[in-house]
């Protein structure tokens, strides 16, 4: 009986540990992907703006 109780706690400990690591990795992956996408988009935006501005430089206000 006591033996069984102990196994439960051992299992719970390992489960909590790996669940924590896994959830952390998932969150991190999501964040990295979103960031990389935004960097790409912004770089495109900059490049577009540069080509559009190149032929006739806008007068400084």
């Amino acid at each position: 009986m006591e033996h069984l109780m102990q196994l439960e706690f051992l299992f719970a400990g390992f489960a909590v540990f790996w669940a924590g690591i896994f959830v952390y990795l998932l969150l991190l992956q999501g964040q990295l992907r979103a960031l990389q996408r935004e960097v790409d988009r912004l770089e495109e935006r900059l490049a577009e703006a540069e080509t559009a501005a190149a032929p006739r430089p806008t007068p400084r206000p």
């Binding site: 006591e2 033996h3 102990q6 196994l7 706690f9 051992l10 400990g13 390992f14 540990f17």
Partner: peptide, 11 residues
């Protein structure tokens, strides 16, 4: 402590 002592290896 029995089986639960195996938590040492992650703790």
């Amino acid at each position: 402590e029995g089986e639960v002592q195996r938590l040492l290896y992650i703790h």
